[in-house]
């Protein structure tokens, strides 16, 4: 199985085929979807897309890390990370689709 990488272009092409707007407008709408999701996440809001999955922002506290190569201790600042929890539907379809 050769793995392909899809990009925004492939998503906007799918929107273009599905709805019959111009290619430009289709691309803009894909961008809008990502922008609104990003903006909500940046304000700390959770983004829940039914039958797709949930994006949540988690706060990580500061800790002492270690450079694995040198063993040297380095402080890791508190930070916010994004986690994605796939829906059952996504998990089932991804597993079923990749069965040999």
């Amino acid at each position: 199985m050769s793995e392909k990488t899809l990009t925004r272009m492939d998503l906007s092409e799918a929107v273009y085929r599905e709805v019959g707007l111009s290619r430009n407008e289709s691309a803009q709408l894909v961008e809008d979807v990502l922008k609104h999701m990003s903006d909500a996440l940046v304000t700390g809001e959770q983004v829940k897309i039914s039958s797709f999955g949930t994006f949540s922002v988690r706060d990580k506290t500061a800790r002492i890390g270690r450079n694995p190569k040198t063993g040297e201790e380095v402080p890791i600042d508190p930070r916010r990370v994004l986690t994605f929890r796939p829906s059952h539907l996504m998990k089932d379809r991804v597993d079923a689709g990749n069965k040999a």
């Binding site: 990488t5 899809l6 990009t7 929107v15 289709s26 894909v30």
Partner: peptide
């Protein structure tokens, strides 16, 4: 339909063993 298509395409791509890089 537009929003649904975006999310469906991502699931379809992964179900076919592909990556989606945004």
């Amino acid at each position: 339909r537009i929003v649904g298509t975006v999310f469906d395409e991502i699931i379809e791509a992964m179900a076919s063993g592909n990556r989606v890089e945004l």
